[in-house]
Amino acid sequence: MIASPLQSLFPNIDDWGELGHACIDTLLMLGGSLALTVLIGLPLGVLLYLTGKGQLRAMPKFYGVVSLLVNVLRSVPFIILMIVLMPVTYALVGTKLGVRGAIPPLVIGAAPFFARLVETALREVQQGVIEAAQAMGASTWQIVRHVLLPEARGGIAAGITVTAIALVGYTAMGGAIGSGGLGDLAYRYGYLSYKSDYMLVTVALLVVLVQLLQMMGDRIVARYKRH
């Protein structure tokens, strides 16, 4: 094999293809789980907002129960959540391993977190604007669709960014119990086999990924905040 500068820098990394594969796995886990998290967390956040105290569809008991459930899911450490959810994961996607096996726990871990961020973003919408829409004869659904979501889009975009970055951390943790991806490499080669160059490269890639997500998110938020 021809000695390349990469090889001399990172002597233990003999299969760059495996690293590339791990990158793709991480991106797949992130993309899949983020899409589902938004799909579930956004309505859940709207529900939390609407049923909260003094809001359009205030239901204190219902809010209390959903809120508690969200808090329980948020307080379980992700690694424990993954293990606890294994039977559920298996029932849902037919495997506990790999990208597919990682997505259910990622979504169940992140959706409640994202729902809270959505609830907070919606609370930032001025009460007066909602009142104006009511005075115009808007239904609750019309208020959600045409007032709350558009007015809170900056906050929601910021929430998606924060959630995506949290998910990057979760995917890396998932590596420890067989989800694959960059976290898996860092754990197996970098930690268990003392190949610190693996650790360095995977962490560097994760940093780049987080940085890119933050920059994209900030750009979108800034565009919405201009008005």
Partner: peptide
């Protein structure tokens, strides 16, 4: 439907900023 027959304006305007 009845509310649509009644316009309202506000001290702080309450326009959609977006």
């Amino acid at each position: 439907a009845q509310r649509r027959r009644i316009g309202m304006i506000f001290q702080h305007f309450n326009l959609l900023a977006s």
